[in-house]
Design a protein around this nucleic acid. Structure first.
Lengths: 134, 134
DNA sequence: CATGTACTTAGCTCATCGGTTAAATAACCT
DNA sequence: AGGTTATTTAACCGATGAGCTAAGTACATG
């Protein structure tokens, strides 16, 4: 058992029940009972799902008397987003433009590169989402 | 077999070998042999991984003579990103500010809402990434 | 302390997954 | 045609995953 973090996170997200639980938690912290309600499924099943989500770092759990309230934990979401960022240029128009900075570079490149060029593009691991722009 | 699209996409991403294959494909279209090289694994195993990725909509495959070149397919990545967008406010500082628009609303809310308020927050399904601002 | 409520753990079943080897298919190259 | 190269399919195996029921733990309260 125990895969690398990204693998266990993606694995956790690969289940519709677990994604539904996360969607519910996006509305706010709540108890296991509450989370279980919408599902036609035994409580132990939900408990397992929560364990998986917790292990994946997608939720964290507190203790209040006999309740174990669950809430979204940001870290793993952020990691997934970071990984996804490596591929963002494949679908995100505005990202491809990099807020206009790449415009010039492209123009320069185009000036000296032949058409239909198949040259490789660097993938700049992480950080794509960090442009706060004030 | 055959889960909902998001589930099979996340499931496909939950394997490090498959993610490595995608990382390689981010550098450009290539053959199965080429993709297989870095891995200490039989060719059929790679073939299966590619099938999974294709089924998940993360890659598409062409035909050139005896080669079946693979390339990144954007759609499923985009879907994952869209889903992730529902949770972006949990970790993305700049998103939380919504380019400054929410600033005022928050101020107004704060004026009439009691402290430690636990009120629910709407999650605005999809589209978060669409602000081109070009 | 006994009972109830909120959960978790244990132990089981069945399906799916990731890997294997061996054989099949497909297209090219004499 | 016959061989080589690229890739897939088939058949199998051990491990993991999602569900169940039954039993256990933790806390609260009558």
């Amino acid at each position: 058992m125990s895969l690398d973090p990204l693998s266990s996170t993606f694995a956790a997200l690969a289940d519709p029940t677990r994604r539904a639980i996360l969607a519910r938690l996006a509305l706010g912290e709540t108890s296991v009972m509450e989370l279980a309600k919408p599902f036609d499924m035994s409580l132990p099943a939900i408990s397992k799902h929560l364990k998986v989500l917790e292990h994946a770092g997608l939720i964290s759990r507190g203790r209040e008397a006999q309740w174990r309230p669950c809430r979204i934990a940001p870290a793993s979401f952020k990691e997934v987003d970071g990984w996804l960022g490596n591929f963002r240029r494949f679908w995100d128009e505005s990202f491809n433009r990099l807020d206009g900075v790449l415009e010039e570079m492209k123009a320069e490149e185009a000036a000296k590169a032949p058409p239909r060029s198949n040259r490789k593009v660097r993938v700049t691991k992480e950080k794509q989402r960090g442009r706060t722009r004030g």
